[in-house]
């Protein structure tokens, strides 16, 4: 067992270079796919590059985290290393906070400033007169300034239907996750599994209903990515949030597998804590989304 003050410096590792190649291929493939899609290229083979990159990334994550878990279980990590992981995760989540801050900032800027200016408010009188004199500011914006180019949505998602249900699901999942954490600290293995499985079910249900909502928005409401700025911000914010829920759920699923493998001790389980920090973070983002995207 490592003692306080012993800092583990790993030997050479192949994972960083594999990760770089994987990331490069994934993004190269994604870029080729998008360019081919926009250019209308038939039978594009770009997706092979993308999948190859994705597989390499998955292999890398499996191998790299596998190494870290082995080292951790071999007792090579000291309390100082534990603090490194904590700082690392904290600042990673801070970077995510800033990413969502940019997206929320976009929403607020458009709602509070850009759309009213287009309708002639403030210094925007001449803009309004010269560009789209018939444009009326409104939020949710159903009729866009150039409504032929960007056909506005017919209706918006009812916040008290699926979104409210989803809010309850995610808030409940944060509570059940905390219960799992308490069980872990009490070393009650049965209850950890139970609460973690319930958390995962709640998270998956959230994602399922989110997809339902998207299908409804596209098929019944005419609320699409190209429905103007309301659709743009709606899908940007909920879409990136959904991607983060997916990532968080994968993290929690890995934690569940590790619990079944007998990993984690009552006083030493930072991987579990990191995953739960992340889960609480996406939960908080959702509350912001529910208020600012759906409600007001």
């Amino acid at each position: 067992m490592a003692t306080e003050g012993t800092y583990y410096v790993p030997a050479q590792s192949k994972w960083p270079i594999i990760a770089s190649i994987g990331l490069f291929l994934t993004l190269l493939g994604a870029g080729m796919m998008m360019n081919d899609m926009t250019a209308g290229v038939k039978d594009s083979s770009a997706h092979y590059v993308f999948y190859a990159g994705g597989l390499i990334m998955a292999w890398m994550l499996f191998g790299w985290f596998g190494n870290v878990i082995q080292e951790s279980r071999a007792g090579l990590y000291s309390a100082q290393m534990d603090r490194t992981f904590r700082w690392g995760m904290f600042w990673f989540i801070f970077s995510e906070v800033m990413f969502f801050a940019a997206l929320f900032g976009t929403l607020f800027y458009v709602r509070v400033l850009a759309v009213p200016w287009l309708a002639g408010e403030g210094d925007g009188a001449m803009t309004h007169e010269m560009l789209w004199p018939n444009f009326i500011a409104d939020w949710p914006l159903m009729v866009n300034p150039d409504n032929d180019l960007f056909v506005g949505a017919a209706d918006v998602v009812d916040p008290f239907h699926l979104p409210l249900l989803n809010t309850l699901l995610l808030v409940a999942s944060s509570i059940t996750l905390t219960l799992a954490h308490h069980a872990l600290r009490a070393n009650d293995r049965y209850k950890i599994k139970l609460w973690l499985i319930i958390t995962l079910i709640l998270g998956t249900a959230f994602l399922f209903f989110q997809v339902e909502e998207y299908i409804e928005a596209y098929n019944e409401l005419g609320l699409t990515l190209s429905a103007g700025i309301y659709g743009s911000t709606f899908f940007l914010l909920t879409g990136f949030h959904g991607a983060h829920v997916t990532l968080g759920a994968i993290m929690l699923a890995v934690m569940l597998v590790r619990v079944y493998q007998g990993h984690f001790e009552a006083d030493n389980h930072f991987a579990f804590e990191a995953a739960s920090w992340y889960w609480h973070f996406v939960d908080v983002v959702w509350v912001g989304l529910f208020i600012f995207v759906y409600l007001v």
């Binding site: 998008m34 800027y109 759309v115 200016w117 287009l118 300034p145 960007f150 990515l225 190209s226 309301y230």
Partner: peptide, 23 residues
């Protein structure tokens, strides 16, 4: 957001859809 405007029909930076290049 640039990528979305280019490939996915969003209007973050297009005033025609209610967005704003100044954003």
């Amino acid at each position: 957001m640039m990528l979305m405007d280019i490939h996915f029909g969003t209007s973050f930076f297009n005033a025609g859809g209610g967005g704003d290049p100044v954003l």
